[in-house]
Design a protein around this nucleic acid. Structure first.
Length: 580
DNA sequence: GCCGTTTTCGGCCCGACTGTTTTCAGTCG
């Protein structure tokens, strides 16, 4: 979806330029279009090919003008309007915007007065003390710029949620235990369970915020205080994590939680509903506006807030303004799969290949985690570096699995161990083990682990061919992405979803935080197409069963219900769904 | 520039904090 991203970037850029000239409303329009396009599950060029300008205009937030610019980009690779703006002011907005405290107005001023075009110009000017001479800037703004530049050069940016969670939970807990704190919760993108989080928003309820804020900004791990007030403070931790703390009175708890959970787009949509009802929504509550008087309507809980707006309660994982509000209005919200709903785990590695622990250790850990069944799915021989299993070793492993199951049963531990495989999909789409062997297994997972750079067409055909195999039950980590390390391979997911439906193949949601593969938009496609999914830990050690939670979060972000997830079903029902 | 369960024209989310200012613009979420 490289094209979509390029166009989104251009629209963001246009928004910035218009903002510099203080043009009202248009920047928001371009931003909105960019946001929708970024989150779009379909390729714009494809949509345009099929439906022309009309199809583009049907995208929410895209109108006549933006549709024409998309068309222009598809045809020529540039947008003249944007090129003209850039020529008028050739600055690296993207990079400069990342400097804390620099917005469009400041960037414009810096360019016009000091000819600053990029981050290196900015650094030079700041070091020479030139920035403090500009109107509206002073010594402090100059210092702030230098500090931010220093931080940017070693900044890690966003963190993968599963990796950041322990630190976030720890800080929240410390705040919660302070005297005078009635409650403290994590809000923001962490509560919405985004794959990666840029910062942690903590919300606390207290009548006496001052000492709490004092504690917060003086925690020993704080590297820098970026804001310090009674209602709101913000810090950067030594780890690189940004943490915001907001403190509100109890009667505003629900409104504040809703506001600080976001997403921004969801909040804006809620406020627009409030306005239409003659009300006003902010982080302190929902208010009826009667002339100058504001009468409190709701805000103690999120539930009463949604109700007062005429909506059903929306789970945080769905709050991205991608259709959930309409569902809530029409009472058509899905009943999302719950965090305690999984009964099994269909991808588990052991020390037979690249896992850290024995079949027995993994089985005991799974039972302890409350699972009723797991599939042992070690790699196959093509993955030589993991000492992948060949025909002979996998038969040995099957016998061993039976022994372990019996042993545990004799101790009163009842967990079903399915004999499985993470069978390698070879370059031509054939599988790494012969059908005769695969047929003996209870469950066969298939996955791509090599030849990531085939063309879209070849990659799609390769995977589809593997899915057609009558023994292939689940496609593991379907897009192969590793967050912040490796992009998904180029594959037509619409085609994969169609093939899954046709062949009865399950698509996996791999719960490893750095994979989170499928991503939410593909999960929604599966839900809509009636394609079943599994949520697997991809466990390589006993503690990894805890990571299933992140897979469930991902499924919830994709609107999945229990009926969509096969390992949320009892074992007999799940087995019945398998091909073999 | 986009949009319509008040509208095809006239609206467009809201408040806290900062730094540079003497009342506010800019930035952020």
């Amino acid at each position: 979806m490289a094209l979509n991203n390029s166009i989104a970037e251009i629209f963001y850029g246009i928004a910035e330029y218009l903002e510099m000239d203080n043009i009202p409303f248009k920047p928001r329009a371009y931003e909105k279009a960019a946001e929708t396009i970024e989150a779009l599950g379909e390729d714009l060029a494809e949509m345009y090919r099929k439906g022309g300008l009309k199809a583009l205009e049907a995208i929410p937030g895209v109108g006549v003008s933006t549709a024409e610019k998309i068309e222009e980009f598809i045809k020529t690779g540039t947008v003249k309007y944007y090129e003209d703006l850039k020529r008028k002011m050739p600055v690296d907005i993207d990079a400069l915007r990342k400097v804390e405290g620099l917005g469009p107005q400041s960037i414009k001023k810096l360019y016009e007065k000091l000819k600053i075009k990029n981050v290196s110009d900015l650094e030079k000017a700041a070091k020479r003390g030139k920035i403090r001479t500009l109107p509206g800037f002073g010594e402090k703004s100059e210092e702030k710029i230098l500090k931010s530049l220093e931080f940017l050069s070693k900044a890690s940016g966003r963190s993968i949620i599963g990796f950041a969670m322990p630190e976030i939970k720890n800080i929240k807990q410390r705040i919660a235990e302070l005297k005078g704190v009635e409650r403290a919760v994590v809000a923001g993108s962490v509560r919405r369970r985004k794959e990666t989080v840029g910062d942690a928003d903590i919300l606390a309820v207290s009548k006496n915020p001052k000492p709490i804020m004092d504690y917060f900004v003086h925690m020993p791990e704080v590297a820098k205080v970026t804001a310090f007030g009674e209602a709101k403070s913000a810090v950067k931790m030594k780890s690189g994590l940004n943490v915001d703390l907001r403190i509100v009175p109890a009667e505003s708890y629900g409104a504040a939680l809703n506001y600080f959970t976001g997403s921004k787009a969801h909040n804006i949509a809620l406020r627009e509903i409030a306005i239409k009802k003659g009300m006003k929504l902010n982080e302190y509550g929902l208010f009826k506006v009667r002339g100058k008087k504001e009468i409190f309507v709701a805000g103690r809980t999120e539930e009463e807030l949604y109700q007062a707006l005429g909506l059903r309660y929306i789970e945080p994982e769905m709050r991205e303004n991608t259709g959930e509000i309409e569902c809530a209005r029409e009472n058509k919200l899905p009943h999302l799969i719950g965090y305690g709903d999984l009964r099994g785990d269909l991808q588990v590695q052991t020390s037979w290949t690249d896992g850290a622990e024995s079949i027995e250790t993994m089985a005991r850990a799974a039972a302890k985690a409350g699972l009723a069944y797991i599939a042992i799915t070690d790699h196959t021989k093509n993955l030589a570096m993991t000492h992948g299993l060949d025909e002979k070793r996998i038969l040995q492993q099957m016998a061993e699995i039976e022994n372990v199951e019996k042993k545990l049963k004799s101790e009163g531990i009842t967990i079903t161990l399915l004999k499985g495989s993470e069978c390698d999909i070879l370059k031509d789409g054939s599988l790494d083990l012969p059908d005769s062997v695969l047929a003996k297994l209870d469950i066969v997972g298939i996955g791509v682990h090599s030849s990531f750079h085939l063309s879209r067409d070849e990659q799609t055909k390769r995977i589809a061919r593997a899915m057609e195999n009558k023994n292939a039950d689940i496609l593991f980590h379907p897009t192969g992405r590793i967050l912040q390390k490796r992009d998904a391979y180029d594959v037509d997911m619409d085609e994969i979803v169609t093939t899954a439906k046709k062949t009865g193949t399950i698509l996996e949601i791999d719960a490893l935080p750095e994979r989170a593969d499928l991503k939410d938009e593909y999960i929604r496609k599966c839900v809509e197409a009636g394609v079943k999914m599994s949520i697997d830990s991809d466990a390589h050690s006993a503690i990894h069963f805890q990571l299933l939670e992140y897979g469930i979060a991902q499924a919830r972000r994709g609107f999945a219900e229990r009926k969509d997830i096969v390992n949320a079903w009892p074992l007999p029902q799940m087995k019945k769904f398998l091909k073999g």
